[in-house]
Amino acid sequence: MALKKHIIDLKVVAKEVLGNRFVLLKCTDPMASLPPMMPGQFAQLRVDGSKETYLRRPISINYVDMTKNEIWFLVQLVGPGSRALGRLQQGDLLNALLPLGNGFSMPVSSDKKHLLVGGGVGTAPLLYMGAQMSMMGIKPTFLLGARTADMLLQLEDFERVGDVYVTTEDGSMGEKGFVTQHSILFKQRFDRISVCGPSPMMKAVARFARQNSVPCEVSLENMMACGLGACLCCVEKTVRGNVCVCTEGPVFDVNELTWE
């Protein structure tokens, strides 16, 4: 059953600048309780006051704190849209359409080992997922990769909810290399892997998962316009043909995709 979608004027209650390329927006709904949302779902954030952009920006749900009525968005400052979002200040309103898409499959029992693999800003939805798992009494294992140590985000938050292993491409933190080279993958057997990150990284993890017969889900971020399955712009080729990432995804079982 799909969760009901809402258009909400969120209010920014706190803003944190992470490194020089990321902004964390902590928002609340000043009028009502936030609706139920699943880890892996996303929001379409309207970009106001930008002359260069027109469309909303799909941003994953980084964390939801129901007791504080807070939702977090981790935004990488890439183009004019994300930079405009990055200029929001505490007290500003942020119009959001949410929750959209389907989340990650959640584990049902703690005797299965579940690995959450994130790369770059793709670590964002894994924090909410790990926190939800932790609340269910299932300790998640995170494997987080980035180019450099200063691009590894929210490590303290991840460490609060699970075991954290890290790689950096320059070796400035954790093991040097890519996530698929991390020793944890060869020391422990995992029963399921959930991945969000750059496409080459997700493809590499998907290959590893297939070779080791581990079920694996990946979260895609194809360019999209509506987020509601209407414009058909964000399609991904799957074994079922072209499907919308916004409504059929963004999370897909790797066996559904036509990746080699």
């Binding site: 027109y54 469309l55 360019m223 316009a225 712009c233 080729k237």
Partner: peptide, 18 residues
């Protein structure tokens, strides 16, 4: 339909080739 990518944002609008 056509292959991805099917859209590009443009100033005050967008291009699509769905």
């Amino acid at each position: 339909g056509n292959d991805y990518p099917r859209m590009v944002e443009t100033p005050s609008g967008m291009l699509n080739c769905v």
